[in-house]
Amino acid sequence: MENAIVKLRGYKDGLHLIIKPKVSLKEVEEAIHELINGMNQPLEGTSVHIDMSTTPLTSADLMELETHLTEKYNLNVSGVNLIDDNEESPIIAAPAVHIIPHCLPTDNQQDYGHAEIVRQTIRSGQTTSSLTGSIIIYGDVNPGGEVVASGDIIVLGTLRGNAHAGANGRLSSVIMAMELVPLQLQIGSYVNRPPIGQKPRGYPEIARIGAENIIIVEEFIKF
């Protein structure tokens, strides 16, 4: 069983469907079929978390897999963990990625060079947004506070709340903060949250969309 293409494991946060790296979507689907048919108990209606490698499955494959699991086996995919098997990769925060459908029109080629400067801390319950460019904040964004920009978000303080860059669909947008310990990050229609209990690292960090459409967070050195 150790070498099986897919494994089902129960962890603290629920069932995890673990997919072996370097297999094709077709193999995965066959293996899932075998696994689920060979089980004594029905799985219908339960939630599973997918743990998979970043290669070679693409996000399109992932979406297809989700649809497959939902339609064929009536399983509810509660989240996806992408495990990176390449150690040199810049992924620091193990991302829990939830792909949500585009809710806003796609990039309409606005001038993202325009930036709005906010000279205050964004506190719980406060929202600051700019749908015509980027936002620079001279202060913190506290838990419960929210920043939304169609361009980039730069926080010259600690980002502890939510930030949504590229809100019109511009996926090249970035989120940067002197200390990046957000509740949630969103770039375009991709959402990511850091692992629970993450401590500030003590250096500036930048979040952007990397390969496979995952939001990656790395030490900020230059844009």
Binding site: Q120, S124, N142
Partner: peptide, 12 residues
């Protein structure tokens, strides 16, 4: 603390 933060925003 979260609620205090909210209140500070409203007072400001």
């Amino acid at each position: 603390i979260r609620d205090a933060d909210r209140i500070i925003g409203l007072l400001q």
